[in-house]
Design a protein around this nucleic acid. Structure first.
Lengths: 330, 330
DNA sequence: CTGAAAGCGCTTACAG
DNA sequence: CTGAAAGCGCTTACAG
């Protein structure tokens, strides 16, 4: 590989001049520029970004940390993050923690050793003290999907309102006995969605159906199936379900079918996210839609702003609106 | 951040000694090592991997290039790639080309500027001349899922045999009029699956049903829906379908249902991949299973071997077996 | 076993 | 507008 030295030699100038031409910061005489560019061309010169980064103390890389990339929620997020990162001149490291906090820690360590300019976390829980600490260190970071209160930049959606609206919608469609299918309360999104559900149900003078057994679970198809099966046993009069994830909603629908009941006639089911596949199910899943791709893009924009401006500016949050997408399951 | 110089000073040794302790290559006296490690500890020293990479000409990063991360085939692959990369001490760049060859080119350029040690491509087509060239340059790379003939390391599955077996299976289950739902023939996997289908059908003395209109299409739900709808019109006696992707298969099943027919009673549908979600559909999708996660891991192992051994060794390929997973759709 | 020095390929004050 | 020099933080021959 040709270096800046080779280019300088070929063009008959000093390496600093080559650097100036390539970075376009200072005025360089047209003739000189021409000669440099020609040398660059002829040698097929490509700058060594490692050297540049070492000197500039800026790598133009960012990282996205997710708990499980095979969950389509995070895939959609990753897609938005990746596209925007590239658009802004950054390359993206993908890190999958598998929900293991010690793996997350070691990711953070190696990413800092690589001088990534910032990190987007889609893994925050109320127990993520290491994230608080990282933020206090002034390291550029943005929480995505899940927040930790007011001290860290974050992009998420209006989970509480979405859940109120979603539950109200089920009532409006004739449900009178609505259960909630949650996720780990240590995750802000799930906690807020529970609160929204609870407030809607109580405002209708009814009682919450939420077996706290499911508090610690993951939002998987199988968890949804299992939970719905038990709900139907424990509360035979259930006629509606709001799930905190599409995966659980689909699993729950399968459980309803397996029990010989019908969706939406016997039990209406509302999902949360609008993953790419859910409209192809039978019945197509009605959801509170989160604009995941756009949220991913927004997180990158926020992160880059933080990278450029440093930790001085006030903490920012961007809260996306959810949208009810009525389909066949309600 | 503390540097190696700070550590050396604190420990009262030369920076080269610090380097030796940290890299553990040469013998260092126990006392000296102790002092160094203590200084490292006290300062919270972390090495600058950019500087290390610049000096060693090895970044310990690799990249995965996919056409569309939102297609679960590539998510499953990425999961295997990421886990194995981390296990081997590499960080992973994720690059999504959106099937745009000029974006792929610019990814390759920036990745080389970042001195990634190698790249895994899940994007190869018969028109990927730039990949041929990169390989000729001696750059470490592995093709994943799709190969380009014998000159580049590759990991894929036995598409031809899988397709023969899959089609035979449909015959065995009583089908006599089996259509094929393909993908772009410029992609080795799709081409080989067509060939397998064709040979099976012809060995039964029957004719291929494959509207070449679909040759250039993407393997999406909607493409599957549309194609199946037209197939049913053009060939009302169709009683089986082998799809080259799960997405198309699901779309096709929906088309069958929409036409008032039943799967599998009227038309049997076989998918290809075994994406995480397909067993939750109604009916659950029968598939030829590709071990995507394992294929991703294997590609990393092959790539790292290539990185360590250079371009001298003969080209290697690893071909995974597929497995028939019978479920409800056949 | 350890130190002093050179160098990886850049950028950027500092001169002129 | 351009050049010469220092330095980013490491590793690794070269001496001793």
């Amino acid at each position: 590989m040709a270096t800046i030295r080779d280019v300088a030699e070929k063009a008959g100038v000093n390496i600093s001049t080559v650097s100036r031409v390539l970075n376009g910061k200072m005025h360089v005489e047209d003739q000189t520029r021409e000669r440099v560019m020609q040398a660059v061309e002829e040698l097929g010169y490509r700058p060594n970004l490692l050297a540049k980064a070492l000197k500039e103390r800026k790598s133009s890389t960012i990282a996205l940390i997710v708990p499980n990339i095979r969950n389509q929620v995070f895939t959609a997020l990753a897609s938005g993050v990746e596209d925007m990162a590239i658009k802004c001149g950054y390359n993206l490291f993908l890190c999958d923690t598998g929900n293991d906090i010690s793996i997350e820690r070691s990711y953070i360590e190696s990413l800092r050793e690589r001088f990534v300019d910032g990190i987007i976390f889609a893994t925050a829980t109320s127990e993520s003290e290491h994230l608080l600490k990282l933020n206090d260190d002034g390291f550029p970071m943005v929480l995505l999907l899940r927040h930790m209160g007011a001290n860290i930049d974050a992009v998420y959606c209006d989970n509480y309102k979405a859940s109120v609206d979603g539950t109200d919608y089920l009532f409006q469609k004739g449900c009178s006995r609505i259960a909630f299918l949650g996720g780990d309360r240590k995750i802000s999104a799930y906690n807020e969605r529970f609160n929204g559900y609870r407030d809607s149900v109580e405002s209708h003078g009814l009682k919450v159906i939420d077996k706290l057994t499911y508090t610690g679970h993951e939002t998987t198809f199988d968890a949804g199936y299992k939970a719905m099966t038990e709900y139907m046993k424990a509360y035979p009069d259930i006629d509606g379900l709001i799930a905190t994830s599409d995966n659980e909603a689909i699993g729950a629908i399968n459980a309803v079918k397996a029990a010989g009941k019908k969706v939406p006639d016997d039990i209406k089911v509302l999902g949360f996210a609008d993953l790419d596949i859910v409209k192809y199910f039978d019945p197509p899943l009605s959801v509170m839609r989160q604009p995941l791709y756009e949220m991913g893009s927004a997180a990158v924009e926020m992160l880059i702003e933080r990278i450029n401006n440093g930790p001085v500016k006030p903490v920012r949050t961007k809260v996306f609106k959810t949208e009810l997408i009525p389909r066949g399951s309600v």
